Each structure stands twice: as structure tokens, then as C-alpha cells.
Amino acid sequence: MSAHGMLFEFSTADDLIAAARRARQAGYLHAEAYSPFPVEGLADALGFSRNRVPLATLLGGIVGGAATYFLQWYTAVHDYPVNVGGRPLHSWPSFIPATFEITVLGAAIAAVISMLKMNGLPRLRHPLFEVPEFDLATRNRFFLFLPAADGVYDADHARRIMSDLSPLLVREVSA
């Protein structure tokens, strides 16, 4: 089996942040951190800046709203024009409720799909799940994973850069 990466276990959030900073300085751009609760400053230490979920949400809302308005306009004006009570064929106030609802629906669907895709989900099996100690990530331990897919990965080098932080566990994870 090939190496998937190196897993380090730490007892405190401060140790995890220090390890993440050190990994980032060593050139690990895709390091992953796991903790039982949100850790302030961890995203910055890993080099996480912004994501594109808000942009995808905006675009999903715009597309949904525009498509709904166009569908109503096309149906009422060109495809099946019916004069109801002398109102104009393009009576935009009657188009607003459906347009608003589908705008919200389009934005919500785009937000969920983009969030899942950017998080790499659904991921039903991950090599980290095979490490017996990894279940502590949901209770009281902090883990840093350095993936072998990073261009700078070397198992010995990864051990060396983390050695003075005294990790509780150092384990090479196989794919």
C-alpha cells in the first residue's frame, strides 16, 4: 500500500495551532486539522483564506430568479397570451412572488451543493478512519494530517519538523 500521509496527535489546541503554522512554513499547503471544537486561529494557521460558497449562493439566486422571471414573462407574453381583466400581458407585479421564492430556492441549493463539493463530501471512506486513535478527534484530542499529495511530503521530514512539539502520536497513514 502507498502512503496517504502522516498523522500527528496533540493534547491541546495551542499545540495544534503551532503544528499547523510549522507545517505551513514547511510548504504543506493542503494540511488538514481535526479538533473536537472550533479553534480560533486554526484557519489562519493552515492558510485558509476565503471560500467561494457565498459567490455560488449569489449566482444560484440570480440564475434561479432570472430563469423564473423569464419563464413567466415568456409564457404570459409570447407563448400563451391571455388578456385577463384588461391588464397588460407583461404584468410584472404578478411575477414577483414566484420569482422571489425560486431565487431563494436557487440560492439555497447552490449553497448546499457548493459547500459539499468544496468540503470534498460525501466521503464515505477515508484512510484516517482506519487509525484507531482518530476517534478521539471528536472527544478531546487534536490531529494534524499532512497529506502525501502535497508536493513537499517526505515522511522523515514531516517527523523532524514536528518532533520538538512532542506529539502524542505519530502515524503514517496508508491509502
Rank of each mutant, 00 (worst) to 15 (best):
L42I: 12
V39M: 08
G27P: 03
S35A: 13
F8S: 06
I17Y: 01
A20S: 13
P36R: 07
R24A: 04
F10W: 06
E32Y: 02
A33Y: 05
A13D: 03
G27S: 00
R24S: 07
N51C: 08
A31G: 07
R50A: 10
G47D: 04
Y28W: 04
D15T: 12
V39L: 08
D15P: 13
E9R: 08
A43W: 09
H30Y: 06
G47C: 06
F48S: 11
A43R: 14
E9Q: 09
R21T: 09
A26C: 09
N51A: 02
A18P: 11
Q25T: 00
A26V: 11
A31K: 07
T12N: 03
G47M: 00
R50E: 09
F48M: 15
F10P: 02
Y28E: 00
F37G: 12
L7N: 04
A13V: 08
E32C: 10
E32K: 12
E9K: 00
A19H: 03
A18R: 08
R50G: 10
D44I: 15
S11T: 12
L16D: 01
S35G: 06
F37N: 13
D14A: 10
L46H: 04
E40Q: 15
F48Y: 15
L7G: 02
D44F: 11
L42E: 03
E32A: 09
R50T: 13
F8C: 03
R21I: 05
F37I: 14
G27M: 01
F10E: 04
A20F: 10
A18D: 04
I17M: 07
S49R: 15
D15C: 10
A45N: 10
Y28Q: 01
I17E: 01
R50Q: 13
A26L: 02
S35T: 11
E32M: 11
D44V: 15
L16N: 02
A23M: 10
A13Y: 03
A26Y: 01
A31V: 03
S11H: 08
D15F: 10
A18K: 11
N51Q: 00
R50F: 12
T12P: 05
G47I: 00
S11D: 15
F8G: 08
A43S: 13
F48A: 14
A26H: 05
F48L: 15
N51I: 10
Q25C: 03
P36M: 06
Y28D: 04
I17W: 00
L29A: 15
R50I: 13
D14G: 11
